[in-house]
């Protein structure tokens, strides 16, 4: 379980998160939504020990993320940060192999090689596993990074806007792959999303942030509602139920 106790974060003196307390139990997909500057990425990077807290405490499976040895945390918690600049001349396969680093410390075993191949196939990258990262399109690179996060084999995966740069086909594929991973392996996935409909269709739980505070928290049916979305985004959004899922028509 990921638990946040009265977490506050400031970036360069500006408060970004205010007294957030949350429990994210094991399993399922949790989507974090909200307008720009709501603190979604900060929340994820705080859980991933990338942004220091001003106050409060974050524990993953009982380990305080800022005190526990970072190498041990890397075996239970994987993060895909938002910036997607991968420096250096690396092949896709090599990049995904780096996801196994916490387990082999640079000397991959047979198991690691097999797991990397599985990850490449899961994310539809096997055909391009020999290509250099800097020759890939933004979307392919994004999938390679997601595959690397998956290959780390942790119980918790944090993904910060993984759908950036993906076309509608691969955005859907990635969400379905994540759904399948959550269902078959029981891994917990926390994902920052801008697309409300992907959140509504694939997530078990949606957390809506605004100005560094949790505005709504619950299953899709409770969060994707005109009144809640108005409170989160500040303008009325029509919501229709299609195939039993609340679909928001924010472009109308």
């Amino acid at each position: 379980m990921i638990s946040l106790e009265t977490v506050s974060v400031s970036l360069s003196g500006t408060p970004v998160l205010h007294d957030i307390s949350l429990d994210l139990p094991r399993g399922g997909i949790t989507a974090v939504i909200g307008p720009n500057g709501a603190g979604k990425s900060t929340l994820v990077s705080a859980i991933a020990r990338l942004t220091p807290l001003r106050s409060g405490r974050i524990c993953v499976d009982g380990l305080d993320v800022f005190r526990a040895p970072t190498r041990n945390l890397a075996k239970i918690l994987a993060v895909m940060p938002q910036d997607n600049a991968v420096a250096g001349r690396l092949r896709v396969g090599e990049l995904v192999q780096f996801g196994r680093f916490p387990h082999h410390q640079g000397r991959p075993t047979q198991t690691d090689v097999a797991l990397v191949e599985a990850a490449l196939r899961t994310f539809d990258l096997w055909d391009i596993h020999d290509r250099f990262i800097d020759t890939l399109s933004g979307g392919q690179r994004q999938r390679a990074r997601a595959a690397m996060c998956y290959a780390q084999g942790t119980d918790y995966m944090l993904l910060d806007e993984p759908l950036n740069n993906l076309d509608i086909y691969y955005a859907r594929e990635l969400m379905r792959t994540l759904r399948q991973v959550a269902d078959t392996t029981g891994r917990s996935i926390v994902i920052v999303l801008h697309d409300l409909n992907h959140a509504a269709v694939h997530a078990d739980r949606i957390i809506a942030l605004r100005d560094g505070r949790v505005v709504a928290d619950g299953p899709a049916a409770e969060v994707i509602r005109p009144d809640v979305l108005d409170a989160v985004f500040g303008f009325p959004i029509r919501v229709e139920t299609i195939s039993g899922k609340p679909i928001s028509l924010h472009f109308l």
Partner: peptide, 22 residues
């Protein structure tokens, strides 16, 4: 440190996520 340096090349956030004591 050559393997850890490979990871450092991925940038600070990713490296910390992979268990590098940055």
């Amino acid at each position: 440190a050559r393997h850890r340096l490979d990871i450092v090349l991925l940038g600070m956030p990713t490296a910390i996520g992979l268990g590098i004591d940055w």
